[in-house]
């Protein structure tokens, strides 16, 4: 077992590319094994689910590139979902209002995380976990435990595929964000600075990078994207649920790690995460098809992260 693990690891020189081979293999197997896999409705659904996770995973990729993590993603998504539905109340007239409030809430959460990490000197893990319970308190008070409201026609239309294609509005939004995210990571000074801070915070500071600013921007990006993922989910779920975001912490982290971004920071990127997102969505889809229980799903999802950590980062990671 030991030698086998090492052997596989040797071949994973570039996990962010290798993951596409896994994806291709899994896709082929799935297509062969289940006849209806390529059907329009199924593919459209798959890509739609991937979009929500994919949008949330952009922020998570940034956070993990910094060598941190954002554990407030899940509850931020729920907050976006709850706020969205309750403000929209089924009418497109409220779209503008919902958009502004949700954007502000996202910025507030991200800035809060940044503040806690940089000025209160809290470990990012702890800070975002604490923020998570604050957000939970907020949406519990807001909904009094029973979320109300519902989607508007426009939000629903974003989740319906146009004509006979598999492409939905949310999918298009995701693709646009993918292009922007990859561009920002690879081609801009901000992207380079994120990698630099993630690789070596002290050296980054010595090189004149304003690390505090980088932290704030990254966590604001993460929170804003997560809260909008939750908002978009309103169109998908129709109404809002208090546990709509629950799985997104584990799944977004798993997608990023599958995609080859190192948990120690400074290595990886969204290209890998993209494949990671598709793999996670296919896996969840598969588990639903074979009708596995919630218990089994949790075990598999948690286990996958551990196995991947063992494969990718065995000698690199340390707390």
């Amino acid at each position: 077992m030991e030698t086998k693990v090492l052997h596989i690891k040797e071949n994973l020189k570039k996990p962010e590319y290798f993951v596409y081979i896994i994806l291709a293999v899994m896709f082929t197997v799935a297509v062969i094994a289940s006849p209806g896999y390529l059907q329009r409705a199924h593919m459209s659904g798959l890509l739609k689910t991937a979009s929500f996770l994919g949008i949330a995973a952009i922020g998570q990729t940034f956070a993990i590139l910094l060598g941190d993590i954002d554990l407030s993603v899940a509850n931020t998504i729920t907050l976006g979902n709850v706020l969205g539905a309750q403000i929209l109340m089924g009418s497109d007239a409220n779209l503008g209002k919902a958009f502004v409030i949700i954007l502000l809430a996202g910025i507030l959460i991200g800035a809060g995380n940044g503040f806690g990490i940089r000025y209160l000197k809290l470990d990012p893990f702890i800070m975002t976990l604490g923020m998570s319970s604050v957000i939970e308190g907020v949406f519990m008070i807001y909904t009094q435990g029973a979320p109300k409201g519902k989607t508007s026609p426009f939000m629903s239309s974003l989740c319906r595929s146009a004509g006979t294609g598999v492409v939905t509005g949310v999918f298009l939004i995701w693709i646009v964000l993918v292009v922007i995210a990859i561009f920002v990571m690879k081609k801009t000074t901000f992207g380079r600075n994120v990698f630099a801070v993630g690789a070596n915070k002290t050296a980054a500071r010595f090189s004149g990078i304003n690390t505090t600013k980088i932290y704030f921007i990254v966590y604001i990006i993460s929170a804003v994207l997560a809260i909008f993922a939750g908002f978009l989910l309103v169109g998908y779920t129709g109404t809002s649920y208090l546990d709509v975001g629950v799985d997104y912490n584990d799944n977004s982290i798993a997608a990023v790690i599958i995609g080859g971004t190192a948990v120690t920071g400074g290595r990886g990127g969204y290209l890998g995460t993209l494949a990671g997102v598709m793999l996670m969505v296919m896996l969840v889809d598969f588990l639903t098809i074979v009708n596995i229980s919630e218990a089994g799903r949790q075990m598999i999802q948690g286990g996958i992260i551990i196995i991947l950590l063992l494969l990718y980062n065995r000698d690199k990671a340390s707390h």
């Binding site: 801009t188 000074t189 380079r192 690789a199 010595f206 400074g266």
Partner: peptide, 29 residues
């Protein structure tokens, strides 16, 4: 090792780091 370099990053990224802004327009390199 601790103050000068990002050891895991490419030589290029390290060399460019301090003066990134000089070769960028609106943040794009």
């Amino acid at each position: 090792k601790t103050e000068g370099l990002m050891l895991g990053l490419p030589v290029r990224d390290n060399l460019a780091l301090c003066s990134l802004g000089r070769r960028a327009r609106m943040g794009v390199i």
